[in-house]
Amino acid sequence: MSGAQHTLRRLRAVACMAPHRAAFGSFSPGPRVPGFPALARGSVHEIFAAGRKDAPAAAGFVTGLALVAGTAERPSLWVRHTGKGAGALYGGGLASLGFDPGALIHLSVENEKDALRAAREGLRCDGLASVVLEIEGPARHLDLSATRRLKLAAAEHGVTALILRAGADPGPSAAETRWRVAASLSASPGLDLPGQPAFTLTLLKHRSAQTGRHWDLEWDHETRQFNPKTLSRPLVALPFDRAHRADREGIRARAG
C-alpha cells in the first residue's frame, strides 16, 4: 500500500470518530494505570464476563465505569435481563462500591427485546449519566444494527451505554470498546483477609488504542477509580467486629 493511500485511510478513520469524541468528552477509569485508555462518553462500551462465575466481577467493573462516566448528580439506569440465578441487584453492594444507590433506577424485564427497548428509551433521556444493559446468555437481538441504534441514541444525548454480557461470546457490534473481565485474586491486606475488588481486564476492541492488552486492576471505592493491583500490602491486622471502629476504618482506608 502506498504512503498516500495509508494516510488517506487514517484520515478517514479519524474523521469518522471525531464527532463522538468531541461531543461529550471522555472519561478515564484508571488515571494511575499505565497505558489504560480513556473511554468516550456518549458511546457504547461492551463488557463481557470471561465465564459465568465472573459475572459479578464484570458487573463490578461496569459499576465502576458507570461511576466514573457519571457527571454531577445524574442518575443511572440499569436494565437487567437475567436468569434467576444471577441474584438481585443490591443497594448495599452499590454503596460499598461507592455508588449512591439512590441514584440508580433499575428494572428487570422478561425478554431481550424489552431490555433493548428500555435501554434505548433510557439513552434518549438527557438527564441520565449512563445506562447499563445487562443481558445474560446469548442475545439474538443484540446485533450490529441494534448496537448501532444504541450508539446513535447515546451519541445524540450524551449518555454512556454500558452493555454487560455474561455467558455469551462477543459477536459483531458497533460498540466503541469491548472488554473481557475476569475475577482475580484480591491483594490481601494481611491475615488472609480479602482486599479490594480485583479484576483481570483484556481489551478486546478499541478504536484508538492497542487491543489485546491485559491489566490487573482493583477498584478503590473511596477515590472511585481503578488502580493497579498492588502485590504487596502492609501487614496490618485486626479482626472485623471490634470496638474501635474508627481504627479499623483507618486501616481499611489505608488498605484500599
Binding site: A86, L89, Y90, G92, S96, F240
Partner: peptide, 20 residues
C-alpha cells in the same frame, strides 16, 4: 421517596448481587 443513603464507609462491605 428520595432518601439519603447511610454512609457506607462505616459499614462492612455488602455484595453487589443478593440471592434471596
Amino acid at each position: 421517596k428520595p432518601s439519603p443513603w447511610p454512609d457506607s464507609k462505616t459499614r462492612p462491605p455488602r455484595p453487589l448481587f443478593l440471592l434471596s
